[in-house]
Amino acid sequence: MKKLTAIVVITFVLSITPVFATYSGGTGEPNDPWQISCPNDLLYLGSHPADYNSCFILTADINLAACTVTTAVIAPDINSVADNFQGVAWLVSGIELILEENGFVAQTGYTEEVFAISGVAFTAGMSLQTLEQNTRRIVEPVRNSSGQIISGYTANKRCLEMNPGYSSPYKPASLASEGKIASGTDLVRVYTENMEGQWAMPRSEIVGLSPYQIANKYSLKYVPTNVVNVNATGTNARIGIAKDNFGYTGGGVQVEFLGKGAEYYNPRTIPSGGIK
C-alpha cells in the first residue's frame, strides 16, 4: 500500500484551477481503477464529480505542498450529499479533516490515519461515494462534537491500552471516530444476560436483522436474545467498524463508551424478524 503524503492546508490563500487531460491510467472499473499518481490526477478528480462513483487506486506518494487551494481538493461542493459534513474531500486531502459546519473538528497531522484513509479510499477499489457513506456512518453518532477521525488501527490500539484482555475489536483498515454522543442519537445494545455494558450500536444498524444476523454483523461470540435502548447523550465514545471474528464477517458500526452515564431503558426480546 502506498502512503499518501498530503501536505494540504485548507487555509491556503490562493486558488488554482488546473486543466488536465485525465488520470495517469485506468478506466475507473473495480478491476482497472483510475490511477492517481501525481497532484494533477488528484486535482483533476476534484474537478470531475461525475467520476466519484468510479474506483481509484493510489499508485505513488503525492505531495501537495506546492499546490495552493482555497477549498478541499476533492469534492468541494459535496456538502449536500453529506448533509452535515464536508464529505470525502477532507479524507482524501487527508490533512485538516475539518467538519466545520457542525463543529466536529478532527485533529491534524495523523499520518497513520492519512495512510489508512488513502488505503480505504483507493487500494480497496472502493468508490468515493461508498467511502463517503461509510464515513458518515462512523461520524453520525458524534456529530456536533469536538472529536477526531482516526483509523481502525488507532482505535484498536487505544481500546487495548485500556482493556488489556481484549483482542482487536475494530477493523484495522477502516475509519473510526471519537467524540461525544450527540443528542438524539438512537442507540441500542444487544445482550443475552447483561443489559448494561460498554458497547452499543446505532439502532439503524440492526433494524430487521435476526439475532444470528446481528451476531454476524458484530462478530459476537454469543448470539443475542435481548435488546435495550441506550441514551448516551454527551458520553465520550469511540465509533468504529466491527472486525471479523469467531467466523463472522463483522462490518457493523459499534459504539464503545469511554465514560459512564448512559441510561439503559425498555429492555425486550429481539423478535425473530428483528427490531423495528
Partner: peptide, 8 residues
C-alpha cells in the same frame, strides 16, 4: 479465570 464477553 477471565475472558472478554462483549454483548453477553
Amino acid at each position: 479465570d477471565s475472558w472478554v464477553e462483549r454483548y453477553r
